[in-house]
Nucleic acid binder design. Sequence first.
RNA 1: GGUGGGGUGCCCGAGUUGGCCAAAGGGGGCGGACUGUAAAUCCGCUGGCAGAAUGCCUUCGGAGGUUCGAAUCCUCCCCCCACCA
Length: 397
Amino acid sequence: MSPEEQLEILKRNAVDLVSEEELLERLKEGRPLNIKLGVDPSRPDLHLGHAVVLRKLREFQDLGHHVILIIGDFTGMIGDPSGRNETRPMLTEEEVRENAKSYAEQAFKILDPEKTELRYNSEWLSPMKFADVIRLAAKYTVARMLERDDFNKRFKEGIPISIAEFLYPLAQAMDSVAIKADVELGGTDQLFNLLVGRKIMEEYGLKPQIVMTMPIIEGTDGKMKMSKSYGNYIAFNDTPKDMFGKLMSIPDNLITKYMRLLTDIPLEDIERYEQEMKERKVNPRDVKMLLAYEITKHFHGEEEAKKAKEEFINVFSKKELPSEMEEVEVINGENIVDLLVRIKAAPSRSEAKRLINQGGVKLDGEKVSDIKYAFKLDGEKVLRVGRRKFYKLIPKS
RNA sequence: GGUGGGGUGCCCGAGUUGGCCAAAGGGGGCGGACUGUAAAUCCGCUGGCAGAAUGCCUUCGGAGGUUCGAAUCCUCCCCCCACCA
């Protein structure tokens, strides 16, 4: 494929590309380029937010390029004071290896293992002496650091920023130096860090890497970016049922964005759906079903995706019971509140009572409205708690 | 090093003439109604325990103290921020 054609494919969906000319030039060299992605080993649960970037990497691979995943074990083992509230836990070497392995396993659901290399950044960061660090730090200024949006904001608002945090972008830049990255990818929130890499590479006499950022996708709540800490994520490892269900719970206005960034559905089709939804020719629910199906299929295969879809339609559209329910043994005479807490359908007795009072607890379709209700089962019954939790109750003799 | 301002429930954020504060408001979460779905919208709930009426227990950075009674006052300690040096 010609460099120009490659560029066309690669720049699709990208938000920033610094710079297009440089990328084209590099593609013209005709060699496999080193494509870098930094990986945080403290969060080995991959979710659809990661998938956006990984899919772009896959495109590079399919065009013959070489992907290098940098496991940030060095920074991980020190503990990352960055971000906001929670300090990330310090990891042992063992944990890091394990997490990295788990990360790779998940990432290979998208990436081609043959064209992927794993590197640990402790390899080059550990041997650095304090003097080396100071020399590195001398190459960047505080003013430039404060250009980073979140630093700037925190500085203005009086939220603490530790010196260590200034060092992290520099450490990340050293990764680029070490592997002589041609291109580094990241989410748009990484733009600043990636650009630091360019500058530092130049300082070390290398050609600056090309920087490409991908959109950040919103999580299932439709507001905040998808992230484990917001609890609005859809994980690679979610069960097909969960994955499908969570995808169905995204707000309608996110449907086509997800399609563009997370599926191979042709662009023309996506645009057509967009149009049809706008003209109300088609029910957004059905388009969303297609989306949920496509993504679930990618991660779990056709078979499972079909099952998940049927299950969803049964339970939520037809209001039937799910095919699989947790089974719970009940002794006759057990109080409903006790049971809810015992099976962890409610975190506390107060919460259980609240659920009952609000009409959220049903036994074989009948609302249970009495807190003092005691079971007297003569056979299996289905207990529904809220909208999503189902239990099969089995009388215990 | 000096001066001043802060640390509140899952998060943000009111509240400091001591009681009416389990603590306003928003977000999130949960439940209900409705629906085209676990979308949107509307209503309600949201520390724990106990319960049909406002009872008890544990919460407002930490440890003590004053008081019939403290998120609110005092002492010491920890942490953050700003300005000056």
